[in-house]
Amino acid sequence: MSQLNATKVEKYRNHFLREVEANVEEGHWVKMCMQCGVCSGSCPLGPYWEHPPQEIFMMIRAGKREEVLKSSSMWFCTSCYNCIARCPRELPITHIMHGLAHYAKRLGLAPQNQATPKFAQYFWDNLYNGGGRVNELKLGLSLYFMNGLVEGIKTALKMRKIGQGMYFSKRMNPFEIFGGHSCKDSQGLKAALNKAREIEEAKAAQFKG
């Protein structure tokens, strides 16, 4: 258990709803859900969710902390905003889903083998370490091989034709593997990003919770 997680568990005990209200972006909206389920039904990725939004809200009220925060569900959110548009109670569901995912990640509870958090992390590392630009080749390969060598080769073979197509249409340069471009003043960008992280963390620490 992460130190932060342990702190939060101690602090809120059975009051997961209150924990969410205090720590999760837009979390104070969770109590307004009236369990109509229109968000769950409207989500284009709904069938892949283990727990759809309305159920997550009920689980939060029922104090199912672990189940919610370890759930892969909110990581499926693609920010299409269908749920927000439809919610009869004005809940910013998309934001709450991201807020929950973010909070779970901070607590170290986000699912380890779910593609979205992994991708997000690879994307971020790639950008942050790659001089302000996403190196698509490296990002692609790291995703192919995220589940090990054998899986990676299989995926690469499967994607062969697309790769070839991109190569011939000059959409992909194999030499990017040796470094690739970075933006101007990549150090400046890094400094900016570091500052941003600092501000975010300060903000998180400020939560009453």
Partner: peptide, 11 residues
Amino acid sequence: LNGVDTEGYHR
């Protein structure tokens, strides 16, 4: 009709 039966989560 598409949706979710919220009593026990059934699509």
